[in-house]
Simulated scan of single mutants.
Amino acid sequence: MAQASIGDSEFDRGTAVTLREPGVYDVQLTSGWTVMDVLNGGHLLAVIGRALGDALPHSDPIAVSAHYLTPAKPGPAVVRTETVRTGRTLSTGQASLFQTDEDGHEVERIRVLSSYGDLAALPDDVRTSAKPPAFPPPERCVTTADGPPPPGDFALIDRLALRMDPATVGWALGAPSGKGEIRAWFEFADGRDADALSLLLTVDALPPTSFDLGLMGWTPTVELTAHIRCRPAPGPLRVAITTRNLAGGFLEEDAEVWDSADRLVAQSRQLARVPRG
């Protein structure tokens, strides 16, 4: 099979938007990006991110904050964008994704506020104490085909080539570590390389850390903020997600994404509801 490329891949087709009129985009959400029959939050963020990248004068997401209002299902949708401010190096926009319910009423699914820029134009000075996550090379990690599938329908996993750190997959065998950690090598199953837009999916594509806490089931995102730091180099990404505090029926997930050049290319934090079992 020929390797898919940026612009011609399942991810690009799944996040495609069609301009209806200035600032308004039609979308067809497909079932291949679902988790327990609802669209994955990172995938929805990438759909809206593509629309904003088209609507704004700058094309690269820098800071993206999303509030998830109602679950999105496969089917037609519309994204409405608004330019809030345009500057020399950054543009700010907001967007919402809507679907029509069975009664014919338009329902808002997700609302996003974003700053966009040109990642290639950022200075190359890096001063950091952050280090790439340490876990085994891909050939010593666990693929999704190596163990029992996650609970429920995870069609999203078939779009990806995840190789999980063996230390963070005990939940799949009924022995979660209780640490709230998930780590994996991330690639698209069709071989597409990562880009700035796809990082919006990557930060929310792994099994939730609630699984490693022994809490199985849908873990719906309430709010997610992603920072895209630079365009990733070709090759697999390393993703590490942690939860330190579960309280009041909510947990946070902090994600770091590192590229093949050992650069921290994306960070995120989200607040999610604890699975109800």
Rank of each mutant, 00 (worst) to 15 (best):
T243E: 04
A255E: 03
L122T: 14
A261L: 10
L200V: 09
T30W: 06
W218L: 15
D101L: 04
T243V: 09
S115I: 00
S210K: 03
L206F: 12
G49V: 01
R163F: 15
P74R: 06
T242S: 12
T168E: 02
L119T: 11
T168W: 11
A121D: 10
K179V: 09
V27H: 01
A226N: 10
V27N: 01
R140Q: 15
P138S: 08
P132T: 06
P232Q: 12
G235I: 05
L45S: 14
G191A: 13
S96E: 00
V169G: 03
H43G: 04
T83V: 15
F188E: 01
D146P: 14
G170Q: 11
G214K: 12
L29E: 11
I6D: 01
W185M: 14
T144W: 13
C141S: 14
V126C: 09
Q270A: 02
R80K: 14
V78P: 00
A4M: 03
G180E: 04
L237T: 02
W218D: 05
T89Q: 11
P166I: 14
L199N: 04
T202D: 05
A194E: 06
D165C: 14
S268D: 09
V239G: 02
C141Y: 13
G42E: 06
A72R: 06
S5N: 05
G104C: 02
P232M: 14
D54I: 03
P74I: 08
V142I: 15
G49D: 03
F211Q: 01
P71W: 07
V38F: 01
A120K: 13
P132L: 05
A272K: 13
A155I: 04
T143H: 13
G117D: 06
D262L: 06
R183L: 13
L97G: 04
R229D: 05
D158N: 08
V17A: 05
P71N: 06
G249R: 09
L122G: 04
D125P: 03
V239F: 07
P151A: 07
D60Y: 02
L113S: 12
